[in-house]
């Protein structure tokens, strides 16, 4: 008993207040909820339990139809089917990210945030049409109370390989940046520093069609998006051999840097292993520890296989 009590840590409130995973049903015609973490918004969770979405319907269905990530800064705008329930819960904005393996949708990750005047953080979707000489521009973003950073981001574009969005775009690899306030030679770095944004997670979001999308989650200490990040590199199995996931980078507010730990994981081992094995995102309460209220394991696909899993714990 004693060990468990010591294991629980006082935490700042998370920037993301609810997380859901929607997956195709057996018929492949509707998206049904496979996982949900609602924290203090249990009523919203209960209201959501009966829902499912056809292609084009609601936010998950719209993501599915349009084949791209979407950020809704105002869930009362008519797209969000559960708008009334969200209003009662104080949830105001939502970000939905599809997980595609080639052209096949494996699931949709939905993240919901609360009062836009509360909390500092950023959930952004960056987009490029990949035309020669193109850049990555902001497709949508939710910033909480970091209004100035929001304005700067709307005016910023990243060339290939440049900055977090450009780096992820060019390498097609998730990246975890530590100090967002240095370098880059433009105002966004300065305003990131001013807003207190310190850690940046960039994740490629493969989607059908020729465009590239990058999801960035920028976190500030006061209202973090996550307190622990893990980036897993997946070597696909072949010839009867199992795939292996290797932890290549990560940060934890308690354990510090996670790189260099030689951790390996097999398919099905825990939530990261499950995301690796199924190619479907996972959101659940992590077992074996009382430190975190929830975690997400998001697989990234390339050439029909899972090549990375990004996990964050909050």
């Amino acid at each position: 008993m004693q060990a468990r009590i010591l294991d629980t840590v006082e935490t700042a409130q998370s920037f993301i207040q609810a997380t859901e995973i929607w997956v195709p049903d057996a018929a492949g015609t509707r998206l049904v909820r496979s996982d949900g973490l609602y924290g203090l918004h249990g009523a919203f969770g209960s209201d959501s339990s009966g829902h499912s979405f056809a292609m084009g319907q609601g936010l998950p269905g719209r993501v599915w139809a349009e084949g791209r990530p979407i950020i809704l800064n105002d869930v009362q705008d008519g797209t969000f089917v559960r708008a009334d329930s969200a209003e009662r819960a104080g949830l105001t904005a939502a970000a939905a990210v599809p997980v595609y393996a080639g052209n096949l949708i494996k699931g949709v990750l939905v993240m919901l945030c609360g009062d836009p005047d509360f909390g500092v953080g950023a959930i952004e979707v960056w987009h490029s049409n990949n035309a020669p000489g193109s850049v990555m521009e902001l497709d949508g973003g939710f910033y909480g109370s970091a209004k100035q950073f929001c304005e700067v981001s709307e005016r910023t574009a990243f060339k290939r390989g440049q900055g977090l969005p450009g780096g992820v775009w060019a390498s097609k690899t998730p990246m975890l940046m530590r100090d967002l306030g240095r370098g880059y030679g433009f105002v966004r770095a300065e305003s990131a520093g001013a807003a207190g944004l310190t850690t940046g997670l960039g994740i490629p979001v493969p989607a059908p069609g020729g465009s590239s999308y990058v999801l960035t989650l920028l976190s500030a200490c006061a209202t973090p998006i996550a307190r622990r990040y893990e980036l897993w590199d997946v070597v696909p199995g072949r010839g009867g051999q199992k795939a292996i996931g290797a932890l290549v980078d990560g940060l934890c507010d308690i354990d510090g840097p996670l790189w260099g730990t030689e951790r390996r994981i097999q398919p099905w081992q825990g939530p990261v292993g499950r995301a690796m094995a199924t190619g479907v995102p996972v959101a659940e309460v992590p077992s074996g520890t009382h430190r975190y209220e929830g975690m997400v394991a998001l697989p990234v696909h390339a050439h029909g296989e899972v090549t990375h899993v990004v996990a964050w714990f909050f």
Binding site: G239, G240, Q266, W268
Partner: peptide, 19 residues
């Protein structure tokens, strides 16, 4: 060239079965 794993055919994965 295919490395040490080439055995042909996928083995049943007991972890998958348990999952």
């Amino acid at each position: 060239i295919f490395g040490p794993a080439f055995a042909g055919g996928a083995q049943m994965d007991p972890m998958a079965a348990v999952a």
